[in-house]
Write a protein that binds this DNA or RNA. Structure first.
Lengths: 269, 269
DNA sequence: TATCATGTTCCATATAGTGGAACAAAATTT
DNA sequence: AAATTTTGTTCCACTATATGGAACATGATA
């Protein structure tokens, strides 16, 4: 994980777009973040490129399949990205090691189970096992959320040493998603010391109203990668008591995943 | 969809890597296709770049989060791609329109339902609804498969006009995945005329032994995008008779998706 | 038809990528 | 332990590629 702070915001996104690639990726991001296809002029006003330049950049991205153009000449993210990403996901060792454990955790709790990795001060969800009962909700996989208001995020942060923690927390812009959202570094730090003490983290409607979870951290042996798993459910069904009851199970599953990873890594490949 | 054939192979992948971006994307592809993390030298031997150049290219990709380096200095696809791709997936209008129909089809058949779009001569799977009974298999989403040996692919191809069809079929390299795989353009064309006649396609273990499906084509109103849906199951459970019985349902679902798309698109946004 | 907004192409210039070679660091052999 | 090979990183003159202003299209609106 990258500890270099210069030019990198707390959310992990780059600041100064350097080089040809940087500019193109920034464009990709711009289009991906929009909530629909964008017309040339929309992009023009958001990027600060001259028209000729922008036009060529977009053309190149389209040529490579990273962007697509719909019949209205509007740009949207291309399927090539989906293909690239899916391969990486399918072959991700961490994810595949964790999978059976997530499944088991789901079988016991009957609630949604998440696996996420820490990236800067964000959590990126790598996998989830959904409750059969729930309607199929917006797929979380690949989604990046702030670490400070998610169970997985706080669990993962709790596994950092203080120096590293301080660096990552430094640049967080605390956004009050709900009334329960932690409001500043102080609140986050004290929550994290709680998490360290007991070994698991809660998210009690801190990111989204009506959504709660328990989460436990996963340390890779070398501390190079931090992750977490969580059991999540709607507040009307999942009480603090049930979360509390599940905590040991979540911690145990996290530990098992750690063990499996160590064993898998062991026979130096 | 791109009808330009020069420099584009039948499988849809580009031939001549032009420009800075092209070379970098080719590298990404190379790493994504490998079945594990790659060391610098591995990549060096596969790409035909000089060492200095390759090193800088990789560094740039890593800087942008498109690649990552593990503790052993090996390269693998970065999570940034997953995040980008997931956004595109979640906001894909086609996918979201189709979703309830896929779900319904699954509820009736209790087998796996797929949605895929045609891209050149490949099918890219956009969504799937899995059987509860089956173990969670390798996720197909984002995966690209040859059109000529998949139900969705043949269904989508059948919706093309002859000229377009000829162009796409021209460069296909027919690979005999199983004994049932169509072996050449002639076999494919005659199969497709069958599909056109009856309105739906079968895949009887043509791509993977023991896997069968029925599929129906989805035409977007302007013919700009072609897709298909299928109901897939293991041969021991799914007989040709059950496939035959499901065919009208699949066709009906495909038609409904088309209608919904048309309505959604209608109010010119 | 005239006008304005939007999208595309061109080309001299500046910039960023290139690749050979030299350097550094491990891993392996002697 | 020294020598050798294999692997990874840095440097810099050179050149391919991206840049961006302006001119050219296209299409929508008045």
């Amino acid at each position: 994980m990258d500890l270099n702070t210069e030019g990198v915001k707390a959310n992990g996104r780059r600041d100064r777009e350097t080089g040809t690639l940087g500019k193109l990726v920034a464009l990709l991001d711009l289009v991906a973040l929009a909530d629909g296809p964008m017309r040339f002029t929309d992009i023009l006003s958001l990027s600060d490129q001259p028209r000729g330049t922008l036009h060529r950049q977009l053309s190149h991205l389209v040529e490579e399949g990273l962007l697509e153009v719909d019949r209205g000449g509007r740009y949207l993210i291309g399927l090539r990205l989906l293909t690239l990403a899916s391969r990486s996901w399918a072959r991700n060792e961490f994810r595949s090691v964790a999978e059976p454990h997530l499944q088991r955790l789901h079988d016991v709790t009957c609630e949604t189970v998440h696996l996420g990795v820490l990236h800067g001060a964000e959590v990126i969800y790598l996998d989830k096992v959904e409750g059969r009962q729930s309607i199929r909700m917006y797929s979380q996989i690949g989604n990046a959320s702030p670490a400070y208001c998610t169970g997985v995020g706080k669990a993962a942060l709790s596994a950092l040493d203080d120096a590293d923690l301080a660096i990552r927390i430094a640049g967080i812009g605390f956004h009050p998603y709900t009334e329960q959202t932690l409001r500043n570094a102080g609140e986050l730090l004290s929550d994290i010391s709680e998490v360290r003490r007991r070994g698991y983290a809660f998210d009690l409607e801190e990111h989204e109203r009506g959504i709660c979870c328990v989460a436990a951290p996963i340390r890779s042996d070398d501390g190079h990668m931090l992750a977490g798993i969580s059991v999540t459910g709607p507040a009307y069904r999942v009480t603090p008591q049930s979360l509390q009851a599940w905590a040991p199970l979540v911690v145990a599953a996290a530990d098992s995943i750690m063990m499996d990873m160590r064993n898998r890594m062991g026979p130096k490949r």
